[in-house]
Design a protein around this nucleic acid. Structure first.
Lengths: 196, 196
DNA sequence: CTATTTTCGTAATTGTAACTACAGAAATAG
DNA sequence: CTATTTCTGTAGTTACAATTACGAAAATAG
């Protein structure tokens, strides 16, 4: 049973994916509706009918980003055989993500840094996602302590904040135009923080 | 010999200092002219007469920031007795700076991350300042190599990018609401990257 | 086919940001 | 005192962003 009225003339999922790319490249405030609708191949009324508002579209785009692009580094963290290999793989994966957009960097880190008070909700949305990233790293480190991969007195919270910081630095430097070589050279000094 | 016409009724240096604080707290695009003029205690025509444009005022504010607030961590880097103490002091100084504004973080790092194409010039202005920070760290590390504080095969460029990344992480996490304790706990893992 | 529902494209509307025109005020030069 | 210069405050102007009103179009239900 097809829906009642005139059918939508565009692919909503594809349009959302395009919107995600625009938000990723330009940030929430930098992405103007005209940029979004042009990339999506639709007009403003279709945008509002399908997504409700710019902010609602952003939230959907962030969810899509987390479900696709953003989760790869975190899966790499958990699926490696050792803790150190996991952290290395997470950083490597984050570099892959950071370089896969032009300009570079992670949407969750760079999408809303400074914003007008009216856009604080979008900032909070990303802040929550960053908190989740931090939790995932901390949980992996705690598992490392339990498994004896790390000394029993390791402060997982602190070390997680440190590696979260490295992820942020990767995004930031990618946005400033760093090359793959530049970014990969950050991994070795960062790995020195893991007790061996 | 006093100047010819009606004298300016406000202190230009003080007004610039106030503008710097607003740009620092809200970023270039987040700082609206109304925010600036209110903090400066003047009206828009006085602002334009004294500073020319929002962008020109931003450049002056950045120069003031570098000359005052921003240079403290870099002076700490050079004036410590040992290299490791210098890096530690730089990071500590950067935390002091990051926590001295509400919300936290460094103007040079956070002032313009995403921006409209029309504001790309402001972004470049900060990018150049960040490049200078990187150069200062690299030069100190190179001196460490010459003085035998670091192994001869140390890659100063790489290590400088790493510590520049730690500075960026400190600012990001301060902006996200990290406490002094949170930020200071990043120092120990970061210091592990210095060959001893 | 007709009525109904939903979408589409054009062209507003509304709100707000950076910036400025202009008339009056406050100083100096002669 | 008068002319000249420069600043100040009020009240715009201009441009542009997000959002929407509205009539035409494209589908289904009966």
């Amino acid at each position: 049973m097809a829906p009642r009225g005139r059918p939508r003339s565009f692919d909503r999922d594809l349009a959302l994916s395009r919107a995600m790319e625009v938000f990723w490249a330009k940030g929430y405030e930098g992405a103007q509706l005209a940029d979004l609708t042009e990339a999506m191949g639709i007009n403003p009324p279709s945008f509002y009918a399908a997504f409700g508002s710019k902010e609602a579209a952003f939230r959907e785009a962030v969810d899509l980003y987390i479900a696709t692009v953003g989760s790869a580094p975190m899966r790499a963290l958990d699926s490696a055989t050792t803790l150190k290999a996991g952290i290395r793989a997470m950083l490597k994966g984050s570099i892959d993500v950071a370089l896969s957009s032009q300009p570079g960097g992670c949407l969750l880190v760079l999408g809303v840094v400074n914003c007008l008070t009216e856009n604080e909700a979008a900032r909070e949305c990303l802040k929550k996602a960053r908190r989740t990233t931090l939790d995932l790293i901390r949980e992996r480190l705690e598992r490392g302590v339990r498994d004896g991969e790390l000394p029993a007195d390791t402060d997982a919270e602190v070390l997680a904040a440190f590696y979260n910081g490295i992820l942020q630095a990767i995004s930031f430097q990618a946005r400033d135009g760093a090359s793959r070589h530049d970014l990969e050279s950050l991994i070795a000094p960062a790995m020195a923080a893991v007790p061996s």
